[in-house]
Amino acid sequence: MKHTLDIIPLQDWLNTDGKPLIIAGPCSAETEEQLVSTAHLLANTGKVNVLRAGIWKPRTRPGEFEGIGSIGLEWLKRAKAETGLLTAIEVATAKHVEEALAAGVDILWIGARSTANPFTVQEIADALVGVDIPVLIKNPVNPDISLWLGALERINRAGIKKIGAIHRGFSSYEKTAFRNEPMWDLAIQLKTLCPDLPVINDPSHICGNRELIPYISQKALDMDMQGLIIESHIDPSVAWTDAKQQVTPAALSELLDNLAARQAASNDPAFDDNLATLRTEIDKLDDQIIQKIGERMKIAEKIGQYKRDNNVTILQVSRWDEILQKRTQLAQALNLDADFAKKFLELVHNESIRKQNAVMNVQPTAQA
């Protein structure tokens, strides 16, 4: 089901000459010199559209640096005046919105912690009524597409039409190479539900370290995201917050040079014809897969009836272990990712369990 948002397309409110939108700047505005010097270096690359900086920093625990506060807005004004870069900051309260607007900030964004709280989002939305300013909304900390959509809808209903989303990854109990798991499927789901919504990727917060930023940045562009928001500091080694995930302006320039910006579509009729042929083959295979799964579930129902009639439990752990081991081995032999195979088998197994459970307590029909 598509979600209807009243959106002004990104290219109509921020001209990037058909290139991805690049938002960059320090995680935190620390000193006036640090912010303005970084802004000049970023502007000199000729590749950055918007200067970002953290003015108010919501931290997990009290006692950590929580932002320089309102004085940082004056530094941003100076940076904008000297470089011509647009400016963007995070807001988390109505007071933040009021101060940012008074200081002439060009773009606002709502952070992951705020997105997770509808009360906070509504407070920000109420403060934006009657205002014409772009607002970007990060995904919530936890993987909840409804919360993300809800925040977008609240801001949109306040009259904000220049609206976009920021994909910054999601918290996960599993320890991986990333600070926040990308969970690309949720970003894809959002783009599917809201096809006209600009989605910007935040590789800095996904990665948590600068080494992985190029990989995630390229993947984001390959996924047809409209831009990147990357943390950049004049000297990341002395940054007051998130030092490991920030890059110098020179490193950012090199990173951007090495990215391949791909087209959303081709103007070559031969390409379109060949692609259509391949997609037709995919469609046929998908139909066959669904049909085979349907046949499998009919057998699962028969097994459920047989177990019911013989007073046997639905779950057979040894059988499930056997399926998982053999099918995963087969998947790997076919050059399929083992994690994908495991997740697919779990989905099929869960549906089989559901089917068997549905018939487990239904008494067999007496024969005449």
Rank of each mutant, 00 (worst) to 15 (best):
G54F: 00
G54E: 00
I55Y: 02
I55T: 01
I55C: 00
W56H: 05
W56K: 08
W56I: 07
P58C: 07
R59G: 06
P62S: 10
E64A: 14
E64M: 14
E66A: 15
G67D: 00
I68P: 01
I68K: 05
G69I: 04
G69H: 06
G69C: 06
S70C: 13
G72S: 09
G72P: 00
E74L: 14
W75L: 00
K77T: 08
K77P: 02
A79Y: 04
K80D: 04
K80L: 04
K80R: 06
A81F: 01
E82P: 06
T83C: 05
G84M: 04
L86W: 01
T87G: 03
I89T: 00
E90H: 00
E90R: 03
V91I: 12
A92G: 13
A92F: 11
A92D: 11
T93W: 02
A94W: 07
A94G: 05
A94Y: 03
K95F: 09
K95H: 12
H96R: 07
V97E: 04
E99Q: 08
E99R: 07
E99S: 08
E99L: 10
E99N: 09
E99I: 10
L101W: 03
L101R: 01
A103H: 02
V105H: 00
V105K: 02
V105N: 02
D106F: 09
D106T: 06
D106C: 01
D106Q: 05
I107G: 00
W109K: 07
I110Q: 02
A112H: 07
T115N: 11
P118I: 13
F119Q: 15
F119L: 14
T120I: 14
T120P: 03
V121N: 08
V121F: 07
Q122V: 13
E123K: 15
I124E: 10
A125I: 12
D126K: 15
D126A: 15
L128Y: 10
L128P: 08
V129Q: 15
V129C: 13
G130N: 12
V131R: 13
V131S: 13
V131T: 13
D132C: 10
D132P: 04
P134N: 10
P134R: 11
P134C: 11
P134A: 12
P134D: 07
V135G: 04
L136W: 02
L136V: 07
I137A: 09
K138R: 05
K138I: 06
V141S: 14
N142E: 15
P143G: 12
S146T: 14
S146V: 13
S146W: 13
L147C: 10
W148Q: 00
W148I: 03
L149N: 07
L149P: 02
L152E: 03
E153I: 15
E153R: 14
E153K: 15
R154Y: 13
R154W: 10
R154N: 13
R154F: 12
R154I: 12
I155P: 02
I155V: 15
I155R: 03
N156Y: 09
N156P: 05
R157L: 14
R157Q: 15
G159A: 11
G159T: 11
K161I: 11
K161V: 11
K162Q: 11
K162P: 00
G164T: 07
A165Y: 04
H167T: 04
G169S: 08
G169M: 03
S172M: 12
E174V: 14
K175L: 14
T176L: 11
T176F: 10
A177W: 10
F178S: 05
N180C: 06
N180P: 03
P182W: 00
M183A: 11
L186M: 08
